[in-house]
Structures are given as C-alpha cells and as structure tokens.
Nucleic acid binder design. Sequence first.
DNA 1: CTCTAGATCTCGAGG
DNA 2: CCTCGAGGTCTAGAG
Lengths: 232, 232
Amino acid sequence: MRLVIARCSVDYTGRLNAHLPLATRLLVHKNDGSLLVHSDGGSYKPLNWMSPPCSLTREDPDEVDLEDGVIERWRVTHAKTGDALLVRIHEIVHDTAHDLGVDPGLIKDGVEADLQRLLAEQVSVVGENLTLVRREYPTAIGPVDLLLRNDDGPGTVAIEVKRRGDIDGVEQLTRYLELLNRDPLLAPVTGVFAAQEIKPQARVLATDRGIRCLTLDYDEMKGVQSGAPRLF
Amino acid sequence: MRLVIARCSVDYTGRLNAHLPLATRLLVHKNDGSLLVHSDGGSYKPLNWMSPPCSLTREDPDEVDLEDGVIERWRVTHAKTGDALLVRIHEIVHDTAHDLGVDPGLIKDGVEADLQRLLAEQVSVVGENLTLVRREYPTAIGPVDLLLRNDDGPGTVAIEVKRRGDIDGVEQLTRYLELLNRDPLLAPVTGVFAAQEIKPQARVLATDRGIRCLTLDYDEMKGVQSGAPRLF
DNA sequence: CTCTAGATCTCGAGG
DNA sequence: CCTCGAGGTCTAGAG
C-alpha cells in the first residue's frame, strides 16, 4: 500500500463523467492496483476511486499540463470495463509505502440472515400452532424467507424478514403471496412482514393488502435462544 | 488527517456487532473525527469505520489487553446513535498528520437527472405526436418523471426514467399508472419504462403489465442536443 | 458466469 | 428533522 498526500485534480470517465478541481488530497494506492482519492471529511466513500481489477501507470504531463504546473500524471484503467481515472499531480507532500499482508477479514453478527435464523427457531413469535416448513422456500420468482404451516387446518404463512421494513419488502412479499396462492397444496397463504423497524408507509401498504406486520426485537430473540454457542 | 499504519484488532458495536482479528492495517483519522480501517485490498469500502459526527478518545489498555500486547486503545463513539468502534493497537508502524484543507467537491455528468432532461427535450424518441406536459409531474405518491400528452386524441403517457432499469422501477411506474388512470382528465394513461439498460426480469414484468420498454442511448441523445453548453 | 437482494449502505433533495 | 430515491452503488450468495 502506497500513501500519497498530493495537490491534484482528478477526472473519471466511465459509467459517467466526473471532475475534481485542484486540491490537496489523500491518494491510497492498494496492492491490488486500486486507487482511492479521499478528502479530509465526508464518510467512508472516497471522492473518486477505481476498483480492482485495474492498473496504474505513471505518465509524463503534456505541454498544457506542464504550463498548469502538473509534475506527473497517474492513469488508472479498469481491466474489463475500460473505465479510467486520470490524476494530475501538481505537488507531492507525502509519499510512503507499507507492506500490510493479507487481512483475515470481518466477522459479523446481527444481519438479516441472523434475524431469519432466530425467527425460524422461534416461530411462536409469529403465532400459535404454526410449524416451520422451511427457510428460503424456493419459488419461480425467488426464495420466500420463511414458510410456516398451520397445524389446525389448511393454509400456510409466508414471512418476509427484513432488518428495516420498507415499501419494497411489502411489494416483494405481495408477489410471493400472489404466486403461492395459486398452489392448491399451500392456499390459502397469508403474509407476515417481519422487521426490526417498519416504516409507516410500508405498514400502511401491508395492512391495506391484508399483510400482518410484526416488529422483531433482535436482542430479546437472541436472549431467548438457549444454549447455542455465541459468536463472541 | 492522521494516517496510521498499525497492527490492531477492531470491534464494532451498534446496528450490528463486528470483529476484526489482529492484523496490520491503515487507520485514517479524518478531521471531522471519523475513522476508516482499510486493508490492502478490496474495494473502497473500509473493513470497518465510524461516520461523523463522532469523536475519538485514546484509552489506556486494561490488564487483559496488556497481557495480549496492546499498547493503546482508540475508542470512537458516534455522537447520536451511540455506535462505538474500539481499536486495540499492538504496534504502530507509521504515524503522520497532514493538513488538507476543505475540498471543493465533485462535479458529475451523466446521472439519471441528465437522462431525464435529455428525454424531456427529445420526446420524439418516445413516439410521434407527443408533447411534454411536464417533468416531475406531482402525484400523491410521488412525482412521475415525465408526463406526455397525446396530440391526436385523448390519453397520456407516463414515463419512468432510470439509468438501470430494474424490477423496482417497474413496480414504481405501475403504482403511478394505477393512480393516474383514476383521473378522467388524463386517462387512459399508458406507461413507458425508459432506461440505458433494462434487466430481463424487469422487461418481462413490464411487458406483462402492458408497459412499453425503451432503451436509451445517452451518448447519442447528448449528441443530438445541439448548442447547449457542456459541463466540460 | 449471471442475477438477486442486503447494506453499520452513503449521499443528496425535498418537505 | 425525516423520508425517499439514486448510486460509477458495493457485496455476498445462489443458480
């Protein structure tokens, strides 16, 4: 990894065109060829960047650049799409290289998959006399998160699990319900929209379509889960 | 901006929990308090991070940490959500600080808004004998990108413009059409789904609902546009 | 390989 | 302040 602090301007050409006027910025050139251009603010998204696979070549400035005070140019080209980043460097303030080695990577806990797993283990949260048929129940238009069977009679419950329940999730569940209800072995299929947080618009739409909303408490559900091994 | 290369482990607690085992990484501490943890690969997304507004405090390691070889700890806490990042530093390989100043920011060209503007100026691309009523035609559930009037008779055309036409866009347009067709001054309203690239599933769904798909060529449309001033 | 759906999404506009 | 939609989305996982 090479770290350069430089006064530079940047032009991107690819899926769109973008231009960064001359200013002092951090350039991170990673070992895989990728380049990040960061300012001293904003969030983790760089002002401009090139993702791997790509390669960086150093160019001499042309006459116009020389008159503007450009001392060198970096051209970073994407191997497949042809997207290109051109960095015109006017001054290098700092320049160091470091060997970091391979990173062991991130371990996560609490994403949608965890919610879905917990709810599959605790179907009583959804209602009484229900049994899990399976997680990721396959259909022609994609897998339904959870499918439950009614123990007392005919009928099935399809559940869409989200961390944040938005209008898109309701649309998704609606498409599944429409399809599943054509199957005489499953019908009638009712819908449950389960999420840690459900947006008001999503709740209105769901209710209007006869879909029940269920707010989930991840920490509580994690607490109920008995002796299973924890990640940390 | 402070740049540190350090052997460290990182724990995030907030909307989820995440853990990074001990390894050598780049720590970028920005002027607004935010922190990025980067490895020497992957894309522009850091392995772990904290977004502003947040603040970093240096802590002494506890006894357990000392036995593990921790020389200092950084605790980065989000001002509002309470999300926290704890960096346990075992060794500092590099440590420099730089004054970057304020960045003038990025200038873009070719995003959805540009597509929409161009199509509004070239409604003949959609079909003959059509006139633009307005862009961003307001409805109760949000603005329709473009609304056109049929010159030869009754009826209206509602257009949803996307850079990449996905299934979500078809759903969005469907909701608009349903609503607009209740208005006797506009009905019958037909739909056109216009995008630079239309995904197969989206095309199938649109066609099934009687919505016409229209693939747009941005460069060509930009070329047609006569003497208007260009960004670069 | 493609395609789908989640994300500590981020970011900006509009009410 | 929140909500909504776009993004050079990125990313992981399944088919």
